[in-house]
Design a protein around this nucleic acid. Structure first.
Length: 609
RNA sequence: GCAGGUGUAGCUCAAUUGGAUAGAGCAUCGGUCUACGAAACCGAAGGUUGCAGGUUCGAGUCCUGCCACCUGCGCCA
């Protein structure tokens, strides 16, 4: 049973509502939550308003009845009624101090999930032969954060990088490189990337797309674009298709070359992962190619379930609530990415026994995942091998836009590469850290080049990651390097700075106040303490809703509360030893919560910066 | 055409899932470094939450209808 004040208040008011409302109160939420403003106390109970409705009694009268009935012994000061019937609650000093002491443990009061299990997170999703761009940045950063958050509450997280390493696009590049006579042993990523582009441009006919575009009255620009693509594409496509057939048939020479493309691509991915500080390595690679032997089995199963229907030579799955069917096999017998995604779900739920599969993929694929998830459900794969219900969830994220609100481009007009972005972030972070370290008063003064570079990287990368994680992931976001690396205001470095200041105080102190009696007399001390108490609920809310930005918002709140405390309450010269040790303990706990949260976001927390 | 999404301060974003006077940051203006790090703090100004209705004690949040923009729509992934 949760012993934090909010849970205790909820239970107390639940009981009071039952007493006041009788059967009418069954199933009603006491609506206990942190107070909206400090003037309203520490917590508020809004349940009287709903209960008054059911009882047809004046809300304030019901609120009074609840106050008369509720048992808040050892928990609260006498509550009062405000506005239409809100009950404002203020914790007793003992209860607040007791609650803080209770969370002063290694796990910081964060409770494990009620139903822990294997959670597969599909993240990063690079395509072989294609340079990583900002879209992969989002998938990787958000996916890594979600993985850390879910691990934090006890899940067994399996990260999977579902590489685009199979299918026609790869065959096209392969064919092009081979026919151009490129030395694959000396292949580098820019060459590969360029080959991918030109292969795409040459070999993409789209008659069906063109017909569809005409049928639905798409704009002339779109139609012209499609017509241009159709020019002379068939020949190249035919050759690529032949390459694909040979590759899939196991042609040794082709397979060797194919592997070289993967190696070159993955070296760059590893480099980006390392610089970003995300937990992602070769052991998480799980490419589309690994499903190739399972695709036919998926089709067989769909047919055995009578889910699949032939239509114009292709195999499709229908849904009761929408027109659009899901295509699972082409008329030429080939499989599609929906087939691969279904195979992945089947393996993850039926072999790996996942209770949850999370897809950290661009929001534009929403319809696709809806179809695939529904098809998987129909196929019976939403119950895992252990009989546990499986949740399939698309953690969709929006596009990264430039300051012009268009998809982010470099000055040259090409897609911004991830590598160039990281270069710049690290460069600017390092420059700033070095600049500040020149001042003799700076705690970083005199540190080695290596140490300063390390911190500079943490600051630059932290800024980029925080910017990505601090807003609701599903929305598009405007990427503005200049704003991020101002390192002021609501940024990653703001949180890192607050953390470094706490470290600084703790460094100066002879002890960390561990075990000291807490005296939370000043309003800033109370506010900080009340903030710390929300940590458990915040982690669970972020995990349950797949919203890392809740963590980010919480940490900013903590950093702000700490700054206010720092301003108002001297620690080292607190007046008495008891008070000093109490404040040190509060600093220490705050530092640990902040570090814990930054770690969940994958943002480093240097001790000096 | 059909489906989905978005619309909040000049700009970039929040809002504990229906709660009190819609909050931050940037930019602007003013004040704080002989107390632990000024990457900070305090204050001012900035709003008809796209528009119009509706539901109720109470709506940025829910329902309806418009407007604007974005995205997707069978043999690419």
């Amino acid at each position: 049973m949760n012993m934090d004040p909010e849970s205790r208040l909820r239970r107390a008011f639940e009981a009071a509502m039952k007493q006041v409302g009788g059967d009418d109160a069954i199933g009603m939420d006491p609506a206990v939550r942190p107070a909206g403003k400090p003037e309203f106390g520490d917590f508020q109970c809004n349940g009287a308003l709903g209960l008054a409705k059911r009882l047809s009694r004046p809300p304030r009268e019901v609120a009074q009845a609840l106050i008369d009935a509720v048992d808040l012994t050892d928990l609260c000061e006498p509550p009062d009624i405000a506005g239409p019937g809100f009950i404002n609650l203020r914790l007793s000093p003992q209860a607040l101090a007791g609650a803080i002491e209770a969370m002063d443990t290694p796990d910081l009061g964060v409770t494990p999930d009620d139903d822990p299990g294997v959670v597969v997170i599909d993240l990063c999703g690079v395509n072989v032969a294609k340079q990583m761009h900002v879209g992969h940045l989002r998938s990787t950063i958000i996916g890594d954060a979600l993985a850390r958050i879910l691990e934090r509450i006890g899940h067994d997280v399996h990260r999977e990088n579902h590489l685009g390493d199979w299918g026609l696009p790869i065959a096209m590049v392969l064919h092009q490189l081979r026919s151009d006579g490129v030395d694959l042993n000396a292949l580098d990523l820019p060459t590969l990337d360029e080959a991918y582009r030109s292969a795409q441009a040459i070999a993409r006919p789209d008659h069906a797309g063109l017909d569809a575009a005409r049928a639905r009255h798409s704009g002339p620009h779109r139609i012209a674009e499609l017509e241009a693509q159709n020019e002379g594409a068939m020949a190249a496509r035919g050759a690529a298709a032949e390459t694909l057939v040979n590759l899939q048939a196991g042609d040794e020479s082709l397979r060797a070359d194919w592997q070289k493309l993967i190696d070159v691509t993955m070296d760059a991915v590893q480099d980006a992962s390392d610089r970003l500080g995300v937990t992602l390595g070769p052991e998480h690679n799980c490419g589309e190619s690994t499903y190739r032997t399972e695709l036919q089995g998926v089709i067989d199963h769909l047919q055995a379930c009578s889910m699949a229907r032939e239509d114009q030579g292709a195999l499709v799955v229908d849904f009761p609530d929408r027109e659009r069917p899901l295509l699972v096999r082409k008329s030429d017998g080939g499989f599609l990415y929906a087939t691969t995604d279904l195979a992945a779900i089947r393996r993850r739920t039926q072999v790996t026994d996942a209770i949850e599969c999370i897809y950290v993929v661009d929001a534009r694929q929403k319809d696709h995942f809806r179809d695939v998830f529904d098809a998987a459900d129909q196929a019976g794969w939403c119950t895992n091998a252990g009989g546990h219900t499986v949740q399939l969830r698309h953690a969709a994220f929006g596009s990264v836009l430039g300051p012009d609100k268009r998809p982010l481009k470099t000055r040259a007009g090409t897609n911004a590469t991830l590598a160039s972005l990281l270069d710049e972030a690290i460069d600017r972070g390092t420059t700033e850290v070095r600049r500040r370290s020149e001042s003799e008063a700076s705690p970083t003064h005199g540190l080695s080049d290596e140490a300063l570079n390390q911190i500079g990287r943490a600051v630059g990368i932290g800024a980029v990651k925080y910017a990505d994680l601090s807003g609701d992931a599903v929305k598009d976001y405007v990427f503005d390097m200049d704003r991020m690396v101002a390192f002021e205001g609501d940024t990653g470095p703001y949180l890192q700075y607050a953390h470094a200041r706490m470290c600084s105080i703790l460094r100066r102190a002879e002890d960390d106040g561990c075990g000291a009696d807490l005296r939370l007399d000043e309003p800033q001390e109370r506010q900080l303490a009340l903030g710390l108490l929300k940590w458990d609920a915040t982690v669970h809310a972020a995990a349950g809703n797949l919203q890392p930005h809740r963590i980010a918002g919480y940490l900013r709140e903590i950093a702000e509360a700490f700054s206010a405390f720092y301003q108002a309450c001297p620690v080292m010269q607190a007046g008495s030893d008891d008070r000093k040790r109490s404040r040190l303990r509060l600093c220490d706990l705050t530092r640990r919560v902040l570090a814990d949260g930054l770690n969940l976001l994958g943002v480093e927390a240097p001790e000096r910066m």
